[in-house]
Simulated assay, not measured.
Amino acid sequence: MSSDSGHTQSAPPRTLLTGFPGFLGSALIKRLLDRGDGPIACLVQSQYREQAQRRAAQLTEDGEEIQLYEGDITEPDIGLGDAFDSLTSVTELYHLAAVYDLAVDASLAEAVNVGGTEHVLDVAETLEVERFHYVSTCYVSGRYDGLFTGSDLQEGQSFNNHYERTKFEAEVAVQERMAEGLPATIYRPAIVVGDSESGETRKYDGPYYMLRLLLAQPVACSVLTSIPGASDAELNVVPRDYVVDGIAHLSDHEDTIGEVYQLCDPGPLSVPAFVDALADAAGHRVVSVPGPKSAMKSLLNTLEAGGLPAESATLDYLDHPTRYACPKTTAAFAGTDIECPPFETYVDELVDFVRENPDIRDQAMQ
């Protein structure tokens, strides 16, 4: 075991979290510490240790409330070895670590998203935790044709990519353990973008390919692809702060055990309206070039090979047949100020952040 900056740990950890110092994990851990859920043991891959140390130092003053453990969820006992014995004090486990990459290959997605989740579930049962919190995704729906809620999962759906398929298989594994008695709560965010107030994000993927491709072109005439079915599809996007607020609230209540909550936008924009909102915020005049999906994917692959910000896998979300609803989540947030803001109210912040921070990568770490 190793703790951040080499500090001696003054108290045993109460909470274990995977996915630090990732995009959601870094924001969520601050909320957990503020409400007294520390010390928090964070599982960190060795290549992210220095980044995790810097992030932990930003979040805490004494360096003892965040304790870093080097490990790997793809290994049994999440790669902790003898250090595992020091986690017997843990009563809550938050599992956020995953490969978030639409173009991820099958073997990596299966090792991390499926095998890794199985290993973390084994740890939860070994530690006999009082709560297990799992961050899934609305897109376990795959290409389900219709309305998909938190009550839906195994509907015979097909999948856009290995990311969706393996997150589906991981949630199936979590729900099977829940059925066997694991006290767990599942959170399904839609497509997560930056903070609604600052625009901050750590990774440019998903809708950011569309935005960055737009910004790379002339203001007077920017070309984006369009495919059949896009006018009928919705793009369900949520800002990070809404997701973190939602998980922080739901995880703090015992009556959420055994439930699945979708953290989606109850009033999402259609794909054409989403493109219009991006174009307006960027101040660009956009011309949509329609064509078959296969041809448009080939075009984006060519643009990517030429160094432009393009990812052909994102096209599958422009004719996505699924609509998402979150009645259970809305009911749980009644009486609070937690609600998903309309995309039009924060798109300016997202665009400004991308313009001011052009060098953020699209690496597949959460």
Score class of each variant (00 low, 15 high):
2 S>A: 12
5 S>C: 08
7 H>W: 01
20 F>A: 07
20 F>Q: 04
23 F>M: 14
24 L>P: 03
25 G>M: 10
26 S>K: 11
27 A>V: 08
30 K>Y: 02
32 L>N: 06
33 L>K: 06
35 R>A: 08
37 D>G: 08
42 C>F: 02
44 V>A: 04
46 S>V: 06
48 Y>Q: 09
49 R>K: 13
51 Q>P: 02
51 Q>E: 09
52 A>T: 06
55 R>S: 08
55 R>C: 10
59 L>Y: 07
61 E>M: 05
64 E>G: 10
66 I>V: 08
67 Q>G: 07
73 I>W: 05
81 G>F: 04
87 L>F: 03
87 L>K: 04
88 T>K: 09
92 E>Y: 03
92 E>S: 14
94 Y>F: 14
94 Y>W: 11
99 V>Q: 07
101 D>E: 15
103 A>C: 06
103 A>N: 13
105 D>Q: 13
108 L>S: 10
110 E>Y: 10
110 E>H: 15
110 E>K: 15
111 A>N: 02
113 N>W: 03
114 V>N: 01
117 T>D: 05
120 V>M: 00
123 V>M: 00
125 E>M: 01
127 L>Q: 00
130 E>W: 03
130 E>G: 13
132 F>M: 05
138 C>P: 02
142 G>A: 11
144 Y>E: 09
146 G>V: 13
148 F>M: 05
153 L>D: 01
153 L>F: 02
159 F>I: 11
161 N>C: 09
170 A>K: 09
172 V>P: 06
172 V>I: 03
174 V>K: 11
175 Q>V: 09
177 R>P: 06
180 E>W: 04
181 G>F: 13
182 L>N: 11
186 I>T: 14
188 R>K: 13
188 R>H: 10
196 S>D: 08
196 S>P: 14
199 G>Q: 12
201 T>A: 09
202 R>L: 12
203 K>E: 01
212 R>V: 00
215 L>C: 01
217 Q>K: 13
220 A>H: 14
221 C>Y: 10
227 I>L: 10
231 S>T: 13
233 A>E: 05
238 V>N: 10
244 V>R: 15
244 V>N: 07
250 L>A: 14
255 D>Y: 06
257 I>V: 15
262 Q>Y: 10
263 L>C: 05
265 D>L: 08
266 P>H: 07
267 G>A: 14
278 L>R: 01
285 R>G: 01
286 V>I: 12
290 P>H: 05
294 S>N: 09
294 S>W: 02
294 S>D: 15
295 A>N: 04
296 M>H: 03
299 L>A: 10
301 N>F: 01
302 T>V: 12
304 E>A: 15
310 A>R: 01
312 S>W: 02
315 L>V: 00
318 L>R: 00
319 D>S: 15
321 P>D: 08
322 T>I: 03
326 C>A: 15
328 K>W: 06
328 K>H: 11
329 T>Y: 07
331 A>F: 04
335 G>C: 09
336 T>P: 08
337 D>T: 11
339 E>W: 05
339 E>S: 15
341 P>G: 12
343 F>T: 14
344 E>A: 15
345 T>Q: 15
345 T>M: 12
348 D>G: 01
350 L>T: 07
357 N>D: 05
362 D>K: 00
363 Q>D: 14
364 A>Y: 07
365 M>D: 11
365 M>A: 11
365 M>S: 06
